[in-house]
Design a protein around this nucleic acid. Structure first.
Lengths: 139, 139
DNA sequence: GGCTATTTGTTCGTATGTATA
DNA sequence: TTATACATACGAACAAATAGC
């Protein structure tokens, strides 16, 4: 699989696609490191910015986790997600957090934020990569 | 308000903060254009990439909308959001969509995706910038 | 503790293409 | 057509974090 610089599709999108496919196929299994930037630059003959943009896409999709000075690692599909039960009448929105919200709620870079609002109560927020919301069953 | 290149805080984060504050304070009102890249480069004495990264942050937060060849514009806070009612037993997660998902569900660039799963049914997905999820009241 | 190699993070410069006015 | 503005992509440099010795 190679990257076509003349494609209508930007190189960083192509590279993200290659890496996404490798993850989805199991070629890159959870816990395994994604090849380093330098390796990807050499393997695909692209610039560093192209590699970094591709990685950032996978990070935002929750597929990999990047550690400064170490590398990027494939995340498990359902690693450890806390289940939060929703109260009746709750309204849920999701968006990217501001830095202040990232700090306040402990949200990783590139990860969306859940905002749960309930009439007469203060809004609650959760990192979307570590929390699943649940509507209680009737039983 | 100025940007300090020697700060521990990256210049693009500082600039995003300045612009965010300008939007939140109403100095930049909904519908108004954000200053152009060239203007921001000159006003703050930073490189183009610094400006572009700052803008991309605001875009991901849903605060601005960027139109190629024109500029970035401040988005209205609660423009028009569809309310989707959740069935009992639903489980909700949120993440950035892959390109295929963006096409399939009509999600704008930099906007998270809601994924609603219900036992025994196919998962449903919604663009998080146009949809609010609601847990029905008991009444 | 330090030192070194590796890797990611940030910033600048430059160039080309595309879309809009 | 020209000017403006955003999108992509290359190269380069230095800083910061990490790991191993």
């Amino acid at each position: 699989m190679t990257i076509d610089p003349d494609s209508y599709e930007p190189a960083y999108i192509q590279l993200a696609g290659l890496l996404r496919a490798a993850i989805d196929s199991g070629e890159l299994a959870p816990g395994q490191p994604v090849p380093s930037e330098k390796t990807l630059i050499q393997q695909h003959g692209v610039a560093r910015e192209t590699v970094r943009r591709a990685i950032s896409i996978l990070r935002a999709e929750g597929r990999v986790q990047t550690l400064a000075g170490r590398g990027s690692y494939v995340r498990g599909s359902a690693d450890e997600a806390e289940v939060v039960t929703l109260a009746p009448g709750s309204r849920i929105s999701s968006r990217m957090p501001s830095p202040a919200e990232r700090r306040q709620y402990g949200v990783a870079e590139g990860v969306p934020l859940f905002v749960v609002e309930l009439e007469g109560q203060e809004a609650q927020a959760y990192p979307a990569d570590r929390v699943i919301l649940e509507v209680p069953s009737l039983t």
